[in-house]
Design a protein around this nucleic acid. Structure first.
Lengths: 192, 192
DNA sequence: TGCATCTTCCTACAGGCTATAGGCAAATAT
DNA sequence: ATATTTGCCTATAGCCTGTAGGAAGATGCA
């Protein structure tokens, strides 16, 4: 009986590739087993469940994304950094739609806390040091940026911006212009 | 044999309720059949497939959301309208997480074109008439608003903003302040 | 080298979901 | 009252998840 040499890590990597090819929610233990030419039951020696497999793929994706983001931010500041970080998310989603979808998987709190997700928040916060924001406003801005990046990328990926002029790239550029302007000129709270 | 009186519409409505209770991706033909105390095969007389069922739920949710949005926008303009529309999305997602998730289902182009999705875009565009934006900028702004609303709501729903100060409601308010300021002061494109 | 042990992958199986085919009974039309 | 349509049924096949227990390859140690 030839041994294929399965490990949780190899399964996660192969699962990530599979996700990019067929979509994250089409990633099943069965399909992954077929890819290794192995029976599905064999995989359960390495992953606890289908959910466990998906979680590992999600963690892999979050890690990859955080690495790319750290790379992109190195040596940049201000709008340059903003654009670089934003493009990391957008490009990753376009190159690896399945992995990007995986990164959105809802993790239980302790898994999330131990994931690369926290690095993402830290990097966004670091980016904002290039803008003059008070502490609570920094948090609001972190949340806004996360929302725009995630929202834009997922709407674009869902096809929301295709088949209508102007093309999505132009809107993306202008949205980043707008965000930069907003951060440089962050408004005071309105009177309640 | 007692007849239950199933119709595609009733199935979609019950499916929407089920989605809110157990999550949209836990909505199955089987589970829905159990809810009507009927065999799963019977449902296939009314919906073509599991995917068809999900699509009907998605269309229902889009419609409900559009109705609420139209209601909220009536008689409002400017920031008042912006806030009202934004809160429609956020409140709907909190009240009906399953339906909200359904509304994100990727529809094939012709289904999407015939859905209430187009009303959403129209309403956002109408809202922007309260701000002085040139035509192409209006499109960029529509996309930005869509991104922020969807991004914020889905990150919040995924638990991204819980367990950290300040609370999400404050960020939401400040994000809307910021968007209003941005729309009132939309920047010209930066030099390429 | 020889043997014990552990690991890896196997077969077998149970349970759940999707989907189709064909049947019987209730509702409706004539 | 009878004929037709409609609604829900049983039966069945295929695929996926997950568990249990078995057999062959890898590893370690005398």
């Amino acid at each position: 009986m030839a041994r294929v040499g399965l490990t949780p890590e190899r399964l996660a990597r192969a699962g990530a590739e599979l996700a990019d090819e067929v979509g994250f929610d089409q990633v099943t233990v069965s399909a992954l087993a077929r890819r290794f030419d192995v029976k599905a039951a064999s995989l359960y020696a390495h992953v606890r469940s289908s959910q466990d497999l998906r979680t590992r793929i999600a963690l892999l994706a979050l890690e990859e994304l955080a690495d790319r983001a750290a790379d992109a931010l190195a040596g940049r500041a201000g709008k340059d950094a903003l654009t670089a970080l934003a493009n990391v998310y957008r490009d990753y989603a376009r190159e690896h739609p399945g992995r990007y979808a995986a990164a959105q998987l809802r993790l239980d709190p302790e898994t999330a806390a131990a994931s690369a997700g926290v690095r993402h928040a830290q990097m966004t916060r670091a980016l904002l040091r290039g803008y003059a924001l008070t502490e609570p406003d920094q948090t609001h801005a972190v949340r806004l940026l996360g929302s725009v990046f995630h929202g834009y990328v997922s709407l674009e990926l869902a096809g929301g911006f295709s088949h209508s002029a102007p093309d999505s790239q132009q809107s993306w550029t202008r949205v980043l212009d707008a965000l930069d302007a907003l951060l440089r000129n962050w408004p005071a709270p309105t009177a309640p």
